[in-house]
Computed example of a mutant assay.
Amino acid sequence: MEGGSGQYNPRTVEEVFKDFKSRRAGIIKALTTDVDDFYQQCDPEKENLCLYGFPNESWEVNLPAEEVPPELPEPALGINFARDGMQEKDWICLVAVHSDAWLLAVAFYFGARFGFDKNDRRRLFSMINELPTIFEVVTGMAKRPVKEKSTGTNSSSKSKAGGKMRSSEVQMKMLKTPPPKDEDDEDDEEDEDEHGDTLCGACGENYASDEFWICCDICEKWFHGKCVKITPARAEHIKQYKCPSCTSNKRARS
């Protein structure tokens, strides 16, 4: 198994961090955009299953490695057994927390194996800590609060729009259509900075003005169009967009 073999061994801080980000991206994909497939694969009738994230940003639900001790630290064992004993959202959050712990274990396993000193370990953790955890991405806690504006006649509308642009506004930014210039240009620049704090609910990466984004009308999380497989053309025909997680939760309740 790729997740448990010793064939891929990053040796520098940058390589370990790249490995961490790739495995993290695979697990986030399993718990967000691919959540229906992930849910089905975690059959409680099967043996102990683990969720693996791989360096190629893919994921897999599989049995743990047979060798003892394993070549790499193993993810949480038996995640499938808890699937039907709790709410789906709570179960996904539980898997996310254990996945965060596993990713740190793998990263610092590589650090120990290749003799990182305390400065290298500190630098590695600092780089990792700049990213939101998988739990924060899954629960939406990764989205930073937007500061309120208290001055000017447009304060109420600005604060309401801050960090939560509607789809039409995002499409305008994607097409790089400049807004009309007026005396509120400075406020617009501040809004742009605030949008930069918004994180994708699927991959956890920051907002970029040259990328198409779409907001879920149910949970109000923002997503890269490419992460949820929505194009600008398709978005024009969607009256109410529901992200994969909200769609899955609705099916589970029905």
Score class of each variant (00 low, 15 high):
Arg166Ala: 03
Asp184Trp: 03
Met174Asp: 02
Phe110Val: 02
Pro73Asn: 01
Asp117Arg: 00
Phe212Trp: 10
Tyr39Gly: 02
Ser99Cys: 11
Glu236Tyr: 00
Glu57Trp: 06
Gly26Thr: 05
Tyr109Leu: 00
Ser155Asn: 09
Ile128Glu: 07
Met172Cys: 09
Ser58Cys: 09
Asp36Arg: 15
Lys147Tyr: 12
Lys226Trp: 10
Ala96Ser: 14
Val137Lys: 03
Ser150Pro: 03
Leu199Ala: 09
Phe223Ala: 04
His224Asp: 12
Pro179Met: 10
Thr177Val: 15
Phe54Arg: 01
Gly6Phe: 02
Glu190Asn: 08
Asp210Met: 08
Lys164Asn: 09
Lys118Arg: 13
Gly111Gln: 05
Ser209Leu: 10
Cys227Thr: 04
Gln87Phe: 13
Glu192Trp: 11
Ile79Met: 10
Arg121Asn: 13
Gly201His: 02
Tyr8Leu: 13
Glu190Ser: 07
Lys143Thr: 12
Leu175Ile: 04
Arg113Trp: 05
Arg144Pro: 00
Arg11Leu: 08
Arg234His: 03
Gly6Gln: 00
Glu169Phe: 01
Asp185Ile: 11
Phe54Glu: 07
Asp197Val: 05
His237Cys: 02
Ile230Ser: 00
Ala25Leu: 13
Asp187Ala: 11
Val138Gln: 03
Ala142Trp: 02
Glu60Val: 05
Glu66Ala: 10
Leu49Lys: 11
Gly3Val: 03
Thr247Cys: 12
Cys216Leu: 08
Val228Asp: 03
Thr177Asp: 14
Asn129Gln: 10
Gln7Val: 11
